[in-house]
Design a protein around this nucleic acid. Structure first.
Lengths: 338, 338
DNA sequence: ATGAAAGCGCTAACAT
DNA sequence: ATGTTAGCGCTTTCAT
């Protein structure tokens, strides 16, 4: 009963050839003009013995694994976890499974991971690329493997990507703070040369410059560990008492920032107005609900998977698609007019 | 260059047989007394041409896929996302990849998913099982496939699992609320017959009974969609003004509960004290930081993967292991003494 | 110390 | 309308 039954077993049990069974199982009975009687017999038998095709063998033969490789920065973060969930749903609907990994934005690790995915003959790649991974991506593309980048892109690589308008996001948030009467607005972010972060930086500066204010940027070395973020942040806020507002560059930094604000006993927005890129429950439920630049998570995931499925099903090469989605500024009381 | 190179290519290029190459690549050169010279030549050539073994072929042949199937309720929730991340790290360290899926606690969906994982010849299963999935799990076990259940277990199935002491968790939290002077304590949870939820319910009742208080339980139909949770919750709180405290059964319900509390303008803890099972940033950063029953996420993930790896490496069958870890009550001001 | 060859389960080109 | 067979890339038994 438990011994795995193969197509050959079915064929011999039914006195047919593997070919016939294979065609029937792959829904090509009609096309191959296999008699209804035989089809019924095969299907009935398959049902009876609970035959399950070995997808490894199938993949080896066809070169298709029906697997999508998903590489995010950290699956445990709210943004990437939500994207992963939405992508998973759409992928499974279309017969694809997801194998995922967290890159930690580490180039060497990602390089290895891409190698593993290739060994597995993953059909398509969805990647939030770390810096310096250009060659690996180029190599995939050279081999005609579909790659969709998201969250950030690689300016030197001409491939599909789905991003949001990061620059406008921070520009708009900063301008909002200014309009609310704040003048000493700091931008606190992770030190990064990646597009999503440099664009956010640009947006901040643009708004600040337009209003002839003085920029104040604090860049923190990236660290998954909250404590390593909280410490420099604490110093920064202690040493910059003249600030009347801060804009955080990511959800992670925003969350840590709120912890620091609590620790220092600052009241929001009276002592310090706050806004952050990204949005999630923490910002909605914080002591003083936090104004946030919300990314359109569903639309992002949708665009990614739609793009990828199109590539996977395409016979011919379609032109590269670069999709930029809008963010939404969700105004809450943390940026109340001064 | 891009054409995939196989072991046969290497063999013929080097005038060796596939066997020799395979032995060397699998580190069995010593054992097979293959000359150092040949080994060096092969390794050098492999390096030079960038040979990558086809793991599909390998898996087909060996029956091992080096893949672990991870089935959680919803990968986008903070608890499961964190677990997934920790498991991923340990799995990759040990040469295993993760293929995941979200079950939505749906039995039929999970049944299909298990089937897919089996077709893929996943080596081991880590599952937060939905109700009614006993037969599928039993079937896996019958075929000697390692299965580790977590978060909840199936009383009728004798297999490894890792859970927390749910009953003591809610008991302790409820008792704490009572000791702080609260008398009308509601327990708000999802309607569920799963062990983790029934145990939590028991813990609440036990503490209430011990103190001869009147229990007040609100069970909500599970729904991923916040709005569907918030609505019944709103009604419940509106209609039970006499309550002076609530205990939420999960992070999700807790988060929704806080939104309702905000919407109704209730002040915590003066109008209503609050505590919740699970812990995450939202509870720490809420207007009034929320007392929480924290699960030991790292220890859970560690136990799961240690257990699974042991099974995967074991030659002989070890006895079933059932691990129960302790929760930690994190007292915050939402349950300040009355 | 190295090689030949079978076979994992499947698909598909090529018969008939 | 159905069968024969080669082969996907790998491991491993058995020979030499």
């Amino acid at each position: 009963m438990s011994k795995n039954i193969s197509i050959a077993d079915i064929a011999s049990a039914l006195h047919l050839s593997k070919t016939t069974v294979s065609f029937i199982l792959n829904g090509r009975a009609e096309e191959k003009r296999i008699s209804d009687k035989v089809v019924k017999r095969v299907l009935a038998y398959v049902e009876e013995v609970g035959y399950r095709p070995n997808s490894l063998a199938k993949s080896l033969r066809t070169g298709k694994s029906n697997t999508i490789g998903l590489m995010v920065e950290d699956i445990s973060g709210p943004f990437f976890a939500s994207i992963a969930r939405l992508i998973e749903d759409r992928a499974y609907e279309n017969g694809y499974k997801i194998i995922y990994c967290s890159t930690d934005n580490n180039t060497a690790k990602t390089h290895d991971l891409i190698g593993m995915f290739r060994d597995r003959h993953v059909d398509g790649y969805i990647i939030a690329p770390p810096p310096g991974i250009e060659n690996d991506i180029a190599e995939l593309l050279k081999n005609d493997l579909p790659v969709i980048l998201f969250d950030r892109y690689l300016p030197l690589i001409d491939t599909d990507h789905v991003i949001v308008d990061n620059q406008f996001g921070t520009y708009n948030a900063t301008r909002h703070l200014i309009e609310q009467g704040y003048k000493n607005i700091a931008y606190i972010t992770f030190a990064s040369t990646q597009t999503q972060m440099t664009d956010r930086m640009l947006g901040y500066h643009k708004a600040i410059d337009e209003h002839k204010l003085k920029p104040n940027v604090k860049e923190i070395v990236f660290n998954r560990n909250d404590a390593e973020v909280i410490e420099p942040l604490t110093h920064f806020l202690q040493e910059n008492k003249h600030l009347d507002a801060v804009l955080f560059g990511t959800d992670h930094i925003g969350t840590c920032g709120l912890k620091v604000i609590n620790k220092l006993g600052l009241r929001v927005p009276n002592d310090l107005a706050v806004a952050s890129f990204d949005d999630y429950s923490v910002f909605e439920l914080y002591t003083c609900p936090v104004t946030a630049v919300a990314q359109p998570i569903t639309a992002i995931a949708d665009s990614i998977i739609t793009l990828l499925l199109a590539r996977l099903n395409a016979k011919t090469k379609a032109p590269v698609q670069k999709i930029t989605l809008s963010t939404e500024l969700i105004v809450r009381s943390s940026s109340k007019a001064k």
